[in-house]
Design a protein around this nucleic acid. Sequence first.
DNA 1: CATGAATGAGGATTCATTCAT
DNA 2: TATGAATGAATCCTCATTCAT
Lengths: 230, 230, 230, 230
Amino acid sequence: MEVVSSDKRQATRKALLSAAKELVFEKGHDRISVQEITSCARVATGTYYNYFDSKQDIFYAVADDMKDEMARALDDSRAIIKDPAMLVSVTLKYYFYQTIDNDDWREFTHCVGLGDLPLQQSSEQCLEDIQRGIKAGRFRVDDIHFTQNLVTGMVSHVSREIQKGRIGRNAVEFAIRSILQMLGLPDLVSKALTQTPLPPIAAPKRARRASQTSSDITSITEYSSAKKTL
Amino acid sequence: MEVVSSDKRQATRKALLSAAKELVFEKGHDRISVQEITSCARVATGTYYNYFDSKQDIFYAVADDMKDEMARALDDSRAIIKDPAMLVSVTLKYYFYQTIDNDDWREFTHCVGLGDLPLQQSSEQCLEDIQRGIKAGRFRVDDIHFTQNLVTGMVSHVSREIQKGRIGRNAVEFAIRSILQMLGLPDLVSKALTQTPLPPIAAPKRARRASQTSSDITSITEYSSAKKTL
Amino acid sequence: MEVVSSDKRQATRKALLSAAKELVFEKGHDRISVQEITSCARVATGTYYNYFDSKQDIFYAVADDMKDEMARALDDSRAIIKDPAMLVSVTLKYYFYQTIDNDDWREFTHCVGLGDLPLQQSSEQCLEDIQRGIKAGRFRVDDIHFTQNLVTGMVSHVSREIQKGRIGRNAVEFAIRSILQMLGLPDLVSKALTQTPLPPIAAPKRARRASQTSSDITSITEYSSAKKTL
Amino acid sequence: MEVVSSDKRQATRKALLSAAKELVFEKGHDRISVQEITSCARVATGTYYNYFDSKQDIFYAVADDMKDEMARALDDSRAIIKDPAMLVSVTLKYYFYQTIDNDDWREFTHCVGLGDLPLQQSSEQCLEDIQRGIKAGRFRVDDIHFTQNLVTGMVSHVSREIQKGRIGRNAVEFAIRSILQMLGLPDLVSKALTQTPLPPIAAPKRARRASQTSSDITSITEYSSAKKTL
DNA sequence: CATGAATGAGGATTCATTCAT
DNA sequence: TATGAATGAATCCTCATTCAT
């Protein structure tokens, strides 16, 4: 009974979330009305407020949803990694590149007025990862919470700097290596771990409508391959 | 009398523009009402529509205003440059860095819903620059309009890529060198011109409130100096 | 089974009534939603409509509930009174003072939009009382129904006048005496019965929060003792 | 120009106020929607918000309006009174009886959720009256502000008590006499002034629809004449 | 041109009520 | 009967835009 009800409830909630997500990418957050969301989700206006307290609320929920998607996509890869250091390395790398490259996320956070919010590992999981490494004898840190906080801060900071073009993309590897060193790993190990290529993780993407930006200057996009030489 | 009236007209228009600009940086574009703009500019509500056709209109005007400011700041430097190639080089470099670094512009275009609009040289001026180079015998191009278009496109494209962190900042010099070569300059000359340091141009900036982002992770900001080594 | 079900039914009904009553005294009638009532009564929204036909309905029911409480509190006193004239006298006095002094009732009726509804004996009971007096040979009236109606009307009228301050509180005794005379009692008896002090009846009251009105003018409250001399 | 504009503005404002006042007496404050007010005032919905900030606001304005009416009605009488003591006496008496008897005010404040707000002289005017008496050598008080506050408090308190029927109407004279004594007048003078009959002041009244209360019991209203004997 | 009152469509939010389970 | 999700009309309020003066 609870299950049935819960099922229906979740379905409606999901419908609203999907509608909201879809609309955000069509128009900008402030152009969207609650009525548009509900009619797009094929429910009545009032139904919205059975699930969210205010118009803004749903956007935060969508953000959480996207974060969960990210996390889930990574979980499969994380599951088969035994080495704590490798786990940290892979996880950080994943979030770095998602923050930088996941245009959906960037567009969404901007549209919704969340600014340049970086995609990040939950601090809980980060903490667990560090603790696991300590138990396994691979990490050595003084204050575990402070360390976690610092790691989170570094990721956030470096992501932003890269996004703003103030530092290059290879700063990612550099940052991860530094973090691993901070966790007490020897230099060489840090370096080695960093260079391990990312296992192919199916980062969630929306179906894209053809971007109109590059189409008219395609002949120029060869320059982006220049990054290898720069 | 025409002059006086015209003066007054420009004054009112300027007041409206200033009000709009100021408000955009305080609140987000959609939080601003026409009535706020007019009351901030100390004119009546209706007056607005003697100068602009719609609410959106003023934001485009503000954008143009900011572009003009940019252009004027550059004009002094351009005035003393005789060599067309140098002119192109300096101008492109200026707009590149403005696009990338001028946070006011970025914030403004975003707030106003103009997206990631790059700051660019007007196509007219660009055309003139190319023509001047041709007359002076320094440039050699087949189709002058096509060339101008291509240049504009490249700047736009490369700016965006840098902003997204997909290529490093040094892509700027690379791009300029490529453009100069496209215009028919020999390799060495292109290279030389590119490396000429930018004369100090007083890029217009608003008074900034201290950013709170990096302050709490200052110990980490050393990494941003890493960009030199990366 | 009918009994069990009926028991449960009454319990739910009571829960709703209590919730409604409680909420009325916290917020004003229009601030209360059906959903608040149900959640306060710990039942589902829809359950409400198994007991009441509309939102307003429950407030009438609460009013009846309060009236019943009043009546019950009086019943003990009435039970031991044998003399019909005394019964009428005591009953009328009770309702008079309840109407005037019972702030809960006043607040409630106002909040709920019932206006200045006086607390009154049910006309049925009033009729019985009169009939009993007639059978006992103490009352003498022409038209029993008309008399009952008149009594009811007088109580209602006098209560209101006292509440509006147009006549003093002692009008209560005067009114009762007049009614007794109307019922055919000799003058002296009427007078004597009227002056019989009210037996202490535990008038139902809610727990009150301290009134903040008089506290700041305490030095003045001595004047309220003036009522004895006026 | 200012005058013209102001004229129109005041006209609209007045229309809204009248509409609101009228509607309050038809329905209860919460039954009234802004749209009803505006349509009753024959203006557009939005116009309301050019004059009042919220739905509640207009009711406070109506209250002020009614207060002003009261004050103006009294002003003629006040204008011809030279003696400060007489001025105080007459003024207080006026407000007392308005608070008690003005059913419009009572109904209005209740409907609007202002409770039993007493009609009072503005504290400014009260202060002036006291000061005038002092200058004329008729009053003698220690702290003028404290005295004013006390007077205000007494009026408020006594009004309420009378309304609740806890003290008789004659408490009015008693209260005024006490106040005059507080202001330093000799006993006999106070008494004499108090008994001066109120000059006939045209207290503002709305056209009343026939009250349904007393109509059916008219034969009983003779009892209200009982107040003389009580 | 300037003014500012008037407009009314549009949007967020609430809530009495219904109904399928 | 109980449930609680769904409904959508109603309400408050905002604001771009118009227009008479």
